[in-house]
Design a protein around this nucleic acid. Structure first.
Length: 220
DNA sequence: CCAGACGTTGTT
DNA sequence: GTCTGG
DNA sequence: CCAGACGTTGTT
DNA sequence: GTCTGG
C-alpha cells in the first residue's frame, strides 16, 4: 500500500510541474509525510488548485476513527460508498518518492530515476470546510513487487489532465494500471529512522548503508 | 421494512 | 449517503 | 505506514 | 492485543 511518502522539494518546482498558483498555506519540503497530516493536493476547480488536505478520508456518514488512507483502484468504482468519489472527486498528491516496508519490516524508498516529481492518484472529500483525501492503490509492478504487494497508483503527466477533469474514469483506471504505463521506479533501502512519523528531513531518504551503525541491528 | 456496514495491509 | 443482509 | 500508549483523582 | 497520533 502507500502509508508514507515524500515531497522534499521547494514550492516552485511543484507549481511548475503541476501548473498551479502558489497555495494559501505555508510550504515546507517534506521527506516523511504520514497519515493524518495535512498534505498538498492538486484538484480541478475552474483551474487546477493546490489545497491542503488531511490524509485520511473523513466521510459524512462514518464513525470517528474511520479514516481510510488508501482505496483499491480496482474496486473503487464498484463500491457504493466510494464510487461517487471516483467519478467526481479525483485529485493528485504531488510526490517525489514513496516508502514501502518489506516483510522483514525494512523500509524502502521508491523514486523516478532522476528524482522527478510525480502525482499519486487520489480522491477527496470536504466536510465542515475541511478537505481530506485518500491515495488509490494497485498491485505492485516492477521494482516495488519484490518489496510489497501493493503500491500507490501513479498518474503519468500525459494523462494528468484527464485524470483530474475527464469523464471516462473506468477506462482511465484500467489504462493507468495497464502495461503502457508501468512506472520506471528506482528503489533503495533506507534508514529505519523513517519508521517514526516524527522524523523529518533529507536524512529520511538516507540509504541504509549510510545510516550505519544505528541501522546495523534491525528488529526481528 | 430496519440494521449495519461501508477501508487497507499484513499476519494468523 | 448507499448498499447488503436478515 | 510505524510508534506509542494503554488509568484515575485531585492538586498544581 | 488494540487503538490513537503523527
Amino acid at each position: 500500500m502507500c502509508g508514507r511518502y515524500s515531497l522534499g522539494t521547494e514550492l516552485d518546482p511543484v507549481l511548475a510541474r503541476f501548473g498551479v498558483e502558489p497555495p494559501a498555506f505555508p510550504w515546507q519540503p517534506r521527506w516523511n509525510i504520514a497519515p493524518g497530516q495535512e498534505v498538498p493536493v492538486v484538484k480541478a476547480a475552474d483551474r487546477r488548485v493546490l489545497v491542503a488536505m488531511g490524509w485520511g478520508l473523513t466521510l459524512p456518514w462514518a464513525k470517528p476513527g474511520f479514516h481510510p488512507i488508501n482505496l483499491r483502484s480496482e474496486t473503487l468504482l464498484a463500491k457504493p460508498a466510494f464510487r461517487e468519489l471516483g467519478f467526481n472527486r479525483r485529485c493528485l498528491l504531488p510526490a517525489d518518492g514513496f516508502y514501502e516496508w518489506d516483510t522483514d519490516k525494512q523500509p524502502w524508498r521508491f523514486t523516478l530515476p532522476d528524482g522527478e516529481l510525480f502525482g499519486l492518484a487520489g480522491v477527496w472529500t470536504q466536510r465542515e470546510g475541511r478537505y481530506s483525501c485518500a491515495v488509490l492503490t494497485r498491485p505492485s509492478v516492477g521494482a516495488v513487487a519484490a518489496v510489497h504487494e501493493r503500491m500507490p497508483l501513479i498518474v503519468p503527466q500525459q494523462v494528468e489532465e484527464e485524470w483530474l477533469a475527464g469523464t471516462e474514469v473506468e477506462q482511465l483506471l484500467d489504462i493507468l494500471r495497464g502495461p503502457a504505463w508501468v512506472p520506471v521506479l528506482e528503489r533503495r533501502r533506507v534508514s529505519r529512522r523513517i519508521n517514526s512519523a516524527r522524523a523529518e528531513g533529507p536524512e529520511c531518504a538516507l540509504p541504509w548503508e549510510e545510516a550505519m551503525p544505528q541501522d546495523a541491528r534491525p528488529p526481528r
